[in-house]
Structure formats: structure tokens, C-alpha cells
Design a protein around this nucleic acid. Structure first.
Lengths: 222, 222
DNA sequence: CGATAGCTTGAGAGTACTCAAAGTGGGTGG
DNA sequence: CCACCCACTTTGAGTACTCTCAAGCTATCG
């Protein structure tokens, strides 16, 4: 999950391609804080997220961290470059993952459908990352946070009578490192959005969005 | 070309896979300012850059722009998502491009070697973009510009008796939009690097790097 | 050689950062 | 079961970096 503006990428859900591939490997089950792989590890499996939320991060030598993406159900994580992982991967929740042999990515011989689905997923990832560039390079703190919340509401929000409720399994620091901000800035921006009635903070992990239009406006303001 | 720190991605040059595929389509020749495609265009071809420098950009509604990448010889550009281009593409120099049918990306039936090379290129792109996230999200203006210059020196620098010379076909505004900075900030940072003898500005498009180590240090300072 | 686009420099403003301290809440052990 | 502890979050104050706006400069191209 990158902060992407309303596109219909998600309509073409790759899950379907995998539904009959249970035989390949037993589903992986993770709990909060479990690590799936680290930067530099050899890639043996890719993973289709079936439930839960997964965090991918990169570290800079001096301790600065960038959250590369949050993986939500339907996402595929673990694409290799030169056969290696280039991020660390931790689960933020209880999660179920369907492992997929790396060989299916690299050759379509055994299972062309799977191969194709993996490829499409990688191409979508490139596109989504481009959106995220826009955000990291060119958006203000308010725009970044509202983009983030808006996308989450679209993708995994619970529809309410009016508006959406979203659950944030990640910490404020995770959000900050995803959006390229300081934790304090994220916190202040939340407060500011609450003050201006754009969001309600039910509890620290539960955000109500009474009017998504307002969020959308703020995420593109000029 | 993303701003990537010394990795050996480039060692596995995808060009080789294409050397015997001339028959597929006539080489495209571009001159500075020629556009190859626009955001929203249907993807029919991918392109292997054989010579020249290509710029990929995205626009935000209100005119803000992000340069997604600069394409250098050996790079493949034009990966589709949902069959469409998601960037605008302009040539910055005279350039020669080898068109590759999109079908070769999506199926390995006709040419497995090509298919594989395209896939590897896409996976490398994902990895490089992750590096670029780190930069946009977490680095200072000086770190961004020195990272940029260092990577260029490594990839396309001309080795001098001591140090490197690099040619910058892109404008200061292009560099700014790539690094997520204002043009003025890029200009000031160039001046500052010149003052501190980290670079020499031979002319506006030609930069001398007497001591790459100094650049590397600045690009990772803490 | 003048026009013009691109680049540099300057001044001032504003956003987001850092450092610091107080507040909150969940979990554990008494 | 309650209280304390610790990690996380929020708030505050001050700073610094980068941006914006403006003006001067440079170089390239008719």
C-alpha cells in the first residue's frame, strides 16, 4: 500500500490467481512483531497477504528509517532484486500469508497464470511507487497525512452511516517514516485535522472520517 | 536512473539480451525536446535506451511536477500498469531507443530470454525506487544533490587523471524536481559545493568531481 | 548584438524539525 | 485488582532549513 490517489488498480485483484494454489506451501501465520525477512536475505518466497498488515522498511546507516510500504490483504510482497530482499519485513498484526515460490515469478513454465499475476503485481507496484514519489517530493505535511488517510479509507475503511472508520495498526512513528515526516509533525497534523473536524480520533488506532471529500480536498490543496 | 547508492545492480546489464533483436522494430531516434509518450497513453512498446538521456515526469493537478527518473543507456523505460503509461516522457538529448513489443513483457512464449530480461529490469526498478524513497523522505538538500552527483559519476562519469567529469543534460529545474527541492535550493547547493571545493563547475552542464570520496561522505552525512 | 530563457543570489517568511516535558494507556507484577 | 512502569503520543518552545518572491546575471540563439 502506497499512498496512491484514487485509481482503479485495485479492481484487478490478483488474489484470484492464487485461490487454487494452496498445495504449494502452507500458509504462514504471523503475530505482531514477527519478522518475515531482512534486507540482504536470499529471496526464496514471495508472499500474498491474505489477512493482516505488514510493514516493509529500509534503514539508512545513521539510523534514519524509511517505511517503504504497508502491505494489506491482496498485496504481494517480497519481490527480489538480484535474488535478494532489499527491505526488512515485520508484521504489525496477526497475519496470514500465502507463500509463492520465487520460481513462479521468474518463469511461467509451471504456472503461467501465476507468473502473469506476479508480473502484473510488480508493474502495479512500480506505478504506485511513482505516486508515492510525488508525495514525498512535493506535498506538505497535511497533504501527506490526508492522502494517507484517504487511501486507507478507500481501500480498507469500514463504511459507516456517513463516512468511514479506519484502523491504524501502525504507530505514529511508522506513519511518519512512511510519509517522510517527524513523529511530532504527524501527531500535530492529526490534532489539527481533529480540531478542524476533518477527522475524529476515536482512539489512537481508530479514526473516523465523517466526510471523505474534505480529506480528498486537503490532500490536493494548492 | 534513480539516485541509488553504490550497488552492483548495474553489473547485470540487460542490454545483452537485446543485441540480436534488431529485427523487431526500427530503432527510434529522438532529439532534445521530443516527446515519446504521455501519461495515459496506451503502452504498445517499451524502450531500451541505447544512447542519450530520457526524462520521465509526473504532474500534480496544481502544476507541481516530479521527475520520476532519468533514463540512461541500458535502462528500459515504459513499463505499463493496466496497459497505460503513467508518466510523460521527453528526451533531453539526441537519443536512440530500441523499441520492444509490450507483448514480450507479458508473455515469454516468443522470446523467453527477452521476457526474463524485461522482468529483471522491472524488479531492479522497484529496488532503485526504494532507494529513491529514502532520499526524498529522509535526506537534506546537500545529501540529495551529492547522492545524485555521486551516482552519476559512478554510472556515466568520464574518468579523469584524478576524479570524474560528469555531463548534466538536464536543467537545474529538472534536477530540483527529481530531488524534491526548489530550483533555487539546487542552485545554492551547487554554489556551496563549489565553494567548499567538493565540485568544480566547468560550465553549467559540466561538473568536475576531484575527489569522489568527499561526495560520498556528504551524501551520507549524519 | 539584443532578446530571452535559464541560472544565481538575496532577503524574508514559513514549514517542519529538534529538544524537552507532560500526558496517556496498556501490561505486568505485587 | 490496582498501581506502577514504560513505551508511545501529544504539546510546547525555539531553531533551522528550505521555500517564495524578487532582482540581477549569464549564455545561448536568432
Amino acid at each position: 500500500m502506497y499512498v496512491t490517489h484514487p485509481t482503479d488498480h485495485l479492481s484487478e485483484n490478483p488474489v484470484s490467481a492464487f485461490s487454487n494454489n494452496r498445495a504449494k506451501a502452507r500458509e504462514a501465520r504471523l503475530k505482531p512483531g514477527d519478522w518475515l525477512f531482512f534486507e540482504g536475505d536470499e529471496v526464496e518466497w514471495l508472499y500474498l497477504i491474505k489477512s493482516g498488515v505488514i510493514r516493509l522498511t529500509r534503514m539508512l546507516e545513521n539510523g534514519r528509517r524509511q517505511v517503504i510500504s504497508f502491505g494489506y490483504p491482496g498485496d504481494i510482497i517480497g519481490f527480489p532484486a538480484d535474488g535478494l530482499h532489499h527491505t526488512d519485513c515485520e508484521s504489525l498484526t496477526i497475519a496470514r500469508l500465502q507463500p509463492i515460490r520465487r520460481a513462479h515469478l521468474e518463469s511461467g513454465r509451471d504456472d503461467p497464470t501465476m507468473h502473469r499475476a506476479l508480473l502484473q503485481s510488480a508493474l502495479h507496484e512500480i506505478c504506485s511507487m511513482q505516486d508515492h514519489f510525488m508525495m514525498l517530493g512535493r506535498k506538505s505535511a497535511t497533504e501527506r497525512l490526508t492522502s494517507f488517510l484517504y487511501v486507507l479509507s478507500e481501500r480498507v475503511g469500514k463504511k459507516l452511516d456517513s463516512g468511514y472508520e479506519i484502523h491504524l495498526p501502525m504507530s505514529r512513528a511508522d506513519i511518519a517514516d512512511f510519509l517522510g515526516l517527524a513523529t511530532e509533525t504527524v501527531s500535530r497534523t492529526f490534532t489539527q485535522l481533529r480540531m478542524s473536524k476533518v477527522i475524529e480520533i476515536e482512539n489512537i488506532q481508530t479514526i473516523i472520517i465523517p466526510n471523505p471529500e474534505m480529506l480528498l480536498d486537503l490532500s490536493l490543496q494548492d
